[in-house]
Nucleic acid binder design. Structure first.
Length: 267
DNA sequence: CACGCCTCCTGTGCGC
DNA sequence: TGCGCACAGGAGGCGT
């Protein structure tokens, strides 16, 4: 569920709350079929949280003693304080008498404690692409990556490899903005530059509106994001394209629902 | 090595 | 009303 704007919105609320807090105890609901879901979470006990950062869709909180608490919200993950809910899968008891609760209906989310910067247990985090809103996200490198790959552009974006943090919603949004067909395998340099800009614009706008809420996503204070009303592609199938009024079309691409304008998004 | 499909899990909404 | 199926913001594993 949560993509970069949602995770960043959570981070902005979580950081001031967790800075300097010591973890008294860590509890997680272990799932035998997914033994690494809460990888070594118990190591958080006794540690002090220094801050809450973000890398792509991962939240990364440095702990004292050279450790890091890494969190991924998956599809339905929510972080709230003192939440009583049957879907709470993990809980960090803090020294201010509050508990940080991880609610995750579908159990796709993860929490882990690792040595700082050692991401063997989280391979995705080790190989993730550049942060889209930083200078590391270079238009020329991005264009080169798009030229080099043979996979359709949308699944390539979702792989997190050319850029971090883009998921199903914002991939559709950015591709619409850049007028690129989601299944296109040939994205030239000019269009790659437009897509680069579109990704930044789309994500920055969504962050301003604190993310997109349909059902599960909420921030640490329980509030929803306000971006849903601003979507132009994702979930808009059947509605007229805002540019050319052609009905937006929905297809399945790489196993994911994909909405685009059949007229103004070309290969 | 790269791609596409299946799977993980739970809930919801739809058509019949 | 009930059942079955498709689908949902993500990503890892497997076979080709």
């Amino acid at each position: 569920m949560p993509e970069l704007p949602e995770v960043e919105s959570v981070r902005r609320q979580l950081d001031p709350e967790l800075q300097g807090r010591r973890v008294l105890r860590a509890w997680s609901d272990p799932i035998p079929t997914m033994p690494r879901e809460f990888h070594r979470l118990e190591l958080a006990a006794g540690r002090t949280i220094e801050s809450v950062g973000r890398r792509g869709k991962f939240l990364i909180a440095p702990l004292d003693g050279g450790l890091e608490l890494v969190m991924h919200l998956g599809m339905t993950g929510v972080l709230r304080f003192d939440l009583e809910d049957p879907h709470v899968r993990a809980r960090l008891e803090l020294d201010d008498a509050r508990s940080l609760c991880f609610r995750d209906v579908r159990r796709f989310g993860r929490m882990a404690v690792v040595e700082a910067g050692i991401y063997d247990a989280i391979p995705m985090l080790a190989m993730i692409g550049p942060e889209p809103l930083s200078d590391e996200f270079d238009p020329d490198v991005f264009a080169w990556e798009l030229q080099r790959t043979n996979s359709p552009v949308k699944p390539f974006l979702l792989s997190q490899r050319p850029v971090a943090g883009v998921g199903n919603i914002y991939a559709d949004e950015a591709l619409w903005l850049a007028r690129i067909h989601p299944a296109s395998r040939k994205v030239g340099k000019r269009r790659a530059f437009e897509l680069h800009r579109a990704i930044r614009e789309t994500l920055a706008g969504a962050i301003e509106r604190e993310g997109t809420t349909f059902s599960d996503y909420q921030m640490v204070n329980g509030e929803s994001g306000r971006n849903a009303a601003f979507l132009v592609a994702y979930g808009q199938q059947g509605k007229p394209c805002p540019r050319c009024a052609t009905p937006m079309r929905k297809v399945v691409l790489g196993g994911r629902g994909t909405t685009y304008c059949p007229r103004c998004q070309r290969h």
